[in-house]
């Protein structure tokens, strides 16, 4: 067990990094796509819908393979490192699901908040940034937490595009030592622990953001 752990932890560290950066991209993509989806400007709305449906409707592994195998070839000729492919693929995939979550969250902000903002003469951008988005993000945390855990689990697929994450290391060690039961049990436990870390982390964030607010109180 002692020899297994360091390498597995290395893999777990890669998994955490991919999860972290992938989450950042997913959150940005989700907000932008949700806004685009709600935009009155039709071309932007069509584009957002296309992005959401495309990345939700196709398999993540297909998306990763496409980015990994197809993008370097003509006519695109874009060569991304496995790490970059992982972050872009996971971020855009989960971001598409996140867009629907954000859309619901933005819709859940009370209409009175918009009216008060108009009365105080906020520009649409400032209103979104200071008033609507903070409240929407808070509402998005419960479903968003599930999506982040999905993202964590999906990072296991990057092992199939040669990235040395926890799953990759587990396979590697299994082929080297054949201590199959220990290795994969340990891998499962490590993922489980990471998922719970995300749970606790998000709950802590939720508590901090809703400081002074009653759940379901008056707006």
């Amino acid at each position: 067990m002692g020899e297994l752990l360091p390498l597995m932890l290395q893999g777990a560290w890669v998994t955490l990094q991919v999860t972290f950066y992938g989450s950042l991209l997913a959150i940005v993509a989700a907000i932008l796509a949700a806004l685009g989806r709600l935009s009155p400007w039709l071309p932007l709305r069509w584009f957002s819908i296309a992005y959401i449906e495309l990345f939700r409707g196709t398999s993540l592994l297909v998306q990763l393979f496409w980015l990994f195998f197809v993008l370097p070839l003509p006519p695109f000729n874009i060569e991304l490192s496995p790490f970059a492919v992982a972050i872009v693929g996971l971020g855009l995939h989960i971001g598409a699901y996140g867009a629907e979550v954000m859309r619901g969250a933005i819709g859940s902000v009370a209409k009175g908040q918009y009216e008060a903002s108009v009365a105080l003469n906020f520009s649409a951008f400032t209103r979104f940034r200071r008033i609507i988005l903070p409240q929407a993000l808070l509402a998005a945390i419960p479903p968003g937490t599930n999506l982040l855990i999905e993202l964590l689990k999906n990072t296991s697929l990057v092992s199939l595009i040669t990235l040395s994450d926890l799953s990759f290391r587990a396979r590697q060690l299994d082929q080297a030592t054949f201590e199959t039961l220990q290795i994969f049990t340990l891998a499962l436990i490590m993922y489980f622990v990471m998922a719970q870390m995300i749970n606790f982390g998000m709950r802590w964030i939720e508590r901090r953001l809703s400081r002074g607010r009653m759940r379901g109180g008056l707006s």
Binding site: P134, L209, G212, S219
Partner: peptide, 21 residues
């Protein structure tokens, strides 16, 4: 229905628009 900004204190509610608008 008042429409105060729930994520801000009373003071923050009152300074929000003067500062950002």
């Amino acid at each position: 229905s008042f429409n105060l900004f729930p994520h801000m204190t009373a003071l923050q509610n009152v300074i929000e628009a003067p500062v950002h608008v």
